[in-house]
Design a protein around this nucleic acid. Structure first.
Length: 207
DNA sequence: CACCAGGTTGACC
DNA sequence: GGTCAACATGGT
């Protein structure tokens, strides 16, 4: 079985260069960012992260004990701020009870199940945390990935697309990190309704 | 003014 | 198994 995934990766890498994702100073910052970026522009998440930092709330213990109103103020700019503040605090309490490294060091399968049991953590958020905070090779499928897959006539739900990527690439954490980052970088710029006809992936790869 | 953004949930079929 | 409205602010 062959596919064109490595070819697409090379095209994107040549076009945009290494992206060095995920932008964050700590593993917990990755986790918080993964929750806050749901259906939200990253620039707004950066603002919210900065707000949380200025309130010294960017640790599990601090967020676990913080006033809900204070959290809401910090993250209002990311939208859905009421449900996100609750979910952020529940998640923080989970990571405050146990040690972060103790959780992230678990095998990917067990870690994924544990993350998915948290309210507000679905497939993409869980996999982003596993790939960028725990540094384990699971491929993250987001809205841009789905769109690009449609461009090359690959369709399916989350886990079907994940199997497609993981089955067609070497099982390598760094490759997964860069590839997903490149897909997002590319998708923001070109995979829109207006510019879909300029898609360098569809032009370069015939499936 | 309409539409979209690095989704998830609970309800429903 | 899949689909759908609700969730909410900020940018184009």
């Amino acid at each position: 079985m062959t596919n064109h995934l490595l070819e697409i990766y090379q095209i994107l890498l040549a076009e945009f260069g290494p992206q060095h994702w995920w932008p964050a100073e700590t593993e917990f910052e990755v986790i918080v960012g993964a929750l806050l970026t749901q259906q939200t522009r990253w620039e707004n998440v950066e603002q919210a992260i900065a707000n949380l930092k200025s309130e010294s709330l960017l640790t599990p213990d601090a967020l676990a004990d913080a006033d809900r109103d204070t959290i809401e103020e910090c993250i209002r700019c990311t939208g859905f701020y009421r449900q996100k503040s609750e979910r952020l605090q529940l998640l923080s309490r989970h990571f405050a009870r146990n040690r972060i490294s103790g959780i992230l060091d678990k095998p990917a399968g067990a870690l994924r199940a544990e993350l998915l049991s948290l309210k507000g953590v679905g497939y993409e958020t869980a996999d982003s945390i596993i790939l960028y905070a725990a540094h384990k090779p699971v491929f993250v499928i987001d809205a841009y990935t789905k769109r690009i897959c449609e461009c090359i006539n690959v369709n399916g739900g989350y886990e079907a697309l994940q199997r497609y990527f993981e089955g067609g690439l070497p099982r390598d954490t760094h490759l997964y990190q860069e590839f997903h980052a490149l897909i997002v970088r590319y998708g923001k710029e070109y995979c829109t309704k207006k510019r879909c006809d300029e898609c360098i992936i569809a032009q370069s790869v015939i499936v």
